[in-house]
Amino acid sequence: MQARQAHAPSLARLSRVTHRYGPVLALDGLDLEVRSGEVLGVLGPNGAGKTTAISLLLGSLQVQEGVASVFGLAPGAPEVRVRRGAMLQISGISANLTVREHVELFRAYYPAPLSASRLMAMAGLEGLARRRYGKLSGGQKQRVMFALALAGDPELLFLDEPTTGLDVDARHRLWSEIRALRESGRTTVLTTHNLDEADALADRVMVIHNGRRIAEGTPAEIKSRTAGRLVRCVTRLAPDAMASLPGVVEARTRGQHLEALTTQPEVLVRELLARDEGLADLTVVAAGLEEAFLALTKDTP
């Protein structure tokens, strides 16, 4: 599978793209490639430039510097639009139309749309067809957006934070739909700051920070690139005190536990044991994607 992706043709790309909003530099010579058949996870903290990058690939922003192309064409070209679907972070569509009316309207935009019943099933909207959009819950609204993104049976799908506001069940259901899409040969670009989501879905992850690509690879590669270890324990020490210890990149509480990411686990464990005699339930594990992400973005100014 890794091999297949490496040689898969590129469906969309940004080359040396720089984008400014007035004095603010949003993208700084960014390179990004979407390969056919993959799920590409685009990660980055808020303000990293993810949405700007996606907007350029959707054609809703004009390229200022560099090159953007989708299917070898300009991102806004009509031929591109019929083969592409998008789910954006928007605050809502018309509250007064029913779910079915929204779906029918979007289906009409495309030459070979998926059937309305199929879309409703894929997005888990069965039984909500006659409900007005405004009367839906947040999760249901998000699923309508997903259905609209799929209306044209797209080859390339952009999902910008798709599971925001979904409960765990709905989230896992959407994940399985995205996996099914991938199995049927579609390509997905997934923007998220939920690292579990990227870990669970993405074939390849790209981390953007301050408008630049700071890492790229499979989730496993990204994780392995972080030398640090995660030290976890129940302690009376405050996270602040922990953060000031040598080698600690990041410290936080999670439930009863305190977690610290460190490049020098041995030194830290020794220090912890010395400071807190009541320390319990100590584990030391390899860092996950989240930790890798933290480490990566912390290193970069």
Partner: peptide, 8 residues
């Protein structure tokens, strides 16, 4: 489900 043609 009503088809688009029907809606037109």
């Amino acid at each position: 489900m009503k088809s688009a043609r029907h809606l037109v």
